[in-house]
Design a protein around this nucleic acid. Structure first.
Lengths: 203, 203
DNA sequence: AGCGGCGTATACCGGTTGGTATAGTCACCG
DNA sequence: CGGTGACTATACCAACCGGTATACGCCGCT
């Protein structure tokens, strides 16, 4: 038995190293172009160890995506938590994105990239990617509903698109203002949906 | 000499077949996972022929991206041309996207995917991708400026992000309404920038 | 004292990668 | 008639791929 996918046991030191290296190499060079041999070498570990801990490359890829997703989620939660009103929380998701892009995300969304690289529709890594997208949408829909939006689903979807677009603009085009632009647009969209800046007592 | 990158001579029948097959396989299965052997077999052609016509895999990838970019541009031009006002033309770009997604783009933006797969920063395919993104932004900026937007650059950038986000939503999440949602959001954004539906005589 | 989990080292497997070499066929064209 | 461009067929190359096998060392736990 080679460590089932869904358990979260503490990870051995060598496994940690492998996962860290995978997090860097898979992201920066692409999943398909990074071989297990290189991974092992870079982590100071033998291939045997990798296969003992993770089972297969496919499973390691899933672990990599899960770990990255978790880090992004932490970043998101941290920024959303400090904001007060639902409206401010929505805008905080763009601040989280800004922080995320500035350092951890120079090569675009890892989930979208993985989706592109893993052409097999049955690859378990795919549902990690769609899970992340759905979670953001659910969060946004929840927030704008709290803020009193008329059609929370549609607005949340549009806001999520701004997120996605900002990532592409920032990584592919190097537009460092992208998240700012997206945030401004989000403010505009919310305003048009009846979510105003201040003075909520405007019945 | 193996056919320089920028010339556009008619393409031999075999080369056409290769480029068509590459257009399908590279997009649906990913660039790195499709080998020249498979490509040759599928096109009913020898590897020798491919290398005689295209020089290298890298060059073939560039040709593939160029051809796809051109097809999208045609789709875009077609939809924009029939629209009247600048505002309608902006919205027409989303109609173009809808038509494009419905049939030619089930696996997301080929340019973004290629950007993810080609990790080498010097790969010539990359500038094809950024070129496409810049061209859309230039078009949008031009249109919203004609429509009298206050800050054409920022608005165009936000609209482009909606494009990008719609593609991801549609391909990864299977949201068939994505382009519609993006179009509606675009209308809202333009409205907030002083580009109204009708009655332009509103000095 | 002993055992099992963790790790190293090395070698190997069949298959595939991008790319090249050699030899030959066919059709068109001056 | 001869030449040339387009193409096929086959074989080959070194390098790398994911994955497995064998054998051994270390350390903490009971």
């Amino acid at each position: 038995m080679t460590a089932s996918a869904t358990e979260a046991r503490p990870l051995t030191p060598a496994a940690r190293r492998v996962l860290d290296v995978a997090g860097q190499l898979f992201y920066t060079r692409g999943i398909n172009t990074v071989g297990m041999e290189l991974l092992a070498e870079e982590a100071g570990v033998t291939k045997k160890t990798i296969y003992d801990r993770f089972g297969s490359k496919q499973d390691l890829v899933v672990a990599y995506l899960r770990a990255r997703d978790e880090r992004w989620q932490d970043c998101l939660d941290r920024h959303v938590a400090v904001a007060g009103t639902p409206r401010a929380r929505v805008l905080a998701t763009f601040d989280a994105l800004y922080a995320w892009m500035d350092g951890e995300n120079p090569r675009g969304c890892a989930m979208v990239n993985a989706y592109a690289e893993l052409s097999d529709p049955d690859h378990p890594g795919r549902e990690v990617a769609v899970g992340q997208k759905l979670r953001l949408r659910a969060l946004l829909a929840d927030l704008v509903e709290q803020a009193g939006a008329a059609a929370p689903g549609r607005l949340a979807e549009a806001l999520a698109m701004l997120h996605e677009g900002a990532v592409v603009a920032c990584s592919v085009l190097g537009d460092t203002d992208a998240t700012r632009t997206a945030r401004d647009a989000a403010e505009t969209l919310m305003g048009a949906h009846g979510i105003a800046a201040e003075a909520p007592s405007q019945v």
